[in-house]
């Protein structure tokens, strides 16, 4: 089941990437990032059966980081929404010259 799990992980990850590229809604982009994280988690879990328990421990840490990131990221989205009345990522173009 390892190969299958890894392939599944790859497909999920790619879907997440495609979502990030296709959508403009910041919250949905965020969700796609969560998909990508979960895809990676799946790969870790699958490999932990063969390599050792550390894979599961790593997933534990990933979850903690994801939780903190979701809290902060969503707070940022709220702050931005207050400013622009929108969560469209095309409005956020301050990262330029």
């Amino acid at each position: 089941m390892l190969t299958e799990s890894l392939l599944l992980s790859a497909f999920l990850f790619t879907i997440g990437v495609a979502g990030v590229l296709l959508r403009r809604n910041a919250i949905i982009i965020f969700m796609c990032i969560e998909i990508m994280l979960n895809a990676v988690n799946l790969a870790f879990i699958a490999l932990s059966r063969y390599v050792g328990i550390e894979g599961q421990i790593f997933v534990f840490f990933v979850m903690v980081v994801a939780a903190a990131e979701a809290a902060v990221g969503l707070a940022i989205i709220i702050a931005i929404f207050r400013h622009y009345e929108s969560v469209d990522i095309q409005n956020f173009n301050l990262l330029r010259w």
Binding site: V17, L21, R24, Q90, F92, N93, L94, L95, R96, W97
Partner: peptide, 17 residues
């Protein structure tokens, strides 16, 4: 070169990818 800096996050994502 600064023209490459569109400020659009998605473009940056494409570049990263």
């Amino acid at each position: 070169l600064s023209r490459l800096q569109t400020g659009d996050v998605s473009t940056y994502v494409v570049a990263v990818l």
